[in-house]
């Protein structure tokens, strides 16, 4: 078996260790004898998702997001929307997550249109939401507990067309108000969790990998790994933040 991963704008959307998600996915595949290949798609490159199994988009700084919006809107947006409707597995974090939504409205009311692949929108707020998080994934998203680190000023609101990825126990999540974190639509998983998200949350990582492999091979399974180090790092944060084991 092999898995083809596409990393969109790795040179521009590379904030807060999000690239660690790629390292994590590749290693967890390798330890199971599954090959993987990562194609890095930059500004100006053609994006072809037809032979891709998993798309990853990370977060960026404002300057960097401004750099790539015109490129995204010159064709890549339609390719992404079509692939999502076709069931492509997508993981997208923070700025990348916002960009799949309808629009971003700054605190002073300037609206910036995004690609509209997901029924959600984001409004800038005065205060940044920064800190460690503990969230519980919905049953549809595997039901695992995820720990992460969020750092965003945008408040994201989910429309009826998407469901939350998780519910917040510690932290702000989408907006600091409705206790939702991230979004789930078909095989798209959006989240505000940096950290990076996947290494300390191996169950969630494996859910993504399995979803992608099953789409490509029909019936695929993943053998369990020795996740002692992962569990220790995960549990240490859950305990520190909630006082629970």
């Amino acid at each position: 078996m092999e898995l083809k991963i596409c990393h969109l704008y790795p040179d521009v959307l590379n904030l807060y260790g999000d690239g660690g998600n790629i390292i994590c996915m590749q290693q967890r595949l390798k330890w199971r004898g599954i090959q993987s290949e990562v194609s890095r798609v930059m500004i100006g490159d053609t994006l072809r998702l037809s032979d891709c199994d998993l798309l990853f988009i990370g977060g960026g700084q404002d300057f960097e997001q401004e750099v790539l919006l015109p490129d995204l809107q010159s064709g890549k947006d339609r390719e992404i929307i079509a692939a999502i409707e076709d069931g492509l597995t997508v993981l997208t974090i923070c700025g990348g997550y916002q960009m799949l939504g309808q629009y971003y409205e700054t605190y002073d009311g300037v609206r910036c249109d995004f690609i509209g692949a997901l029924d959600l929108y984001t409004v800038g707020s005065k205060q940044r939401m920064i800190g460690n998080t503990v969230c519980h994934c919905t049953e549809e998203c595997g039901g695992s507990t995820i720990v992460g680190f969020e750092n965003h000023s945008g408040k994201t609101r989910l429309g009826p067309g998407v469901k939350p990825l998780a519910h917040v126990q510690v932290g702000f999540g989408n907006n600091g108000e409705d206790k939702t974190e991230g979004a789930h639509y078909r095989n798209v998983f959006g989240s505000y969790s940096h950290g990076p998200l996947l290494p300390k949350n191996p169950a969630f990582c494996d859910l993504l990998l399995l979803t992608a492999l099953q789409r490509r091979y029909g019936d695929a399974t993943l053998e369990p790994l020795d996740d002692l180090a992962e569990r220790k790092a995960h549990d240490a944060m859950v305990q520190r933040l909630t006082g629970q084991r």
Binding site: Y16, G20, I23, I130, N132, H194, G195, P196
Partner: peptide, 13 residues
């Protein structure tokens, strides 16, 4: 820095 995710941006590889 309370965010330790930067260790994943450093080339421990």
């Amino acid at each position: 820095g309370t965010d330790i995710s930067w260790i994943w941006d450093a080339d421990f590889e």
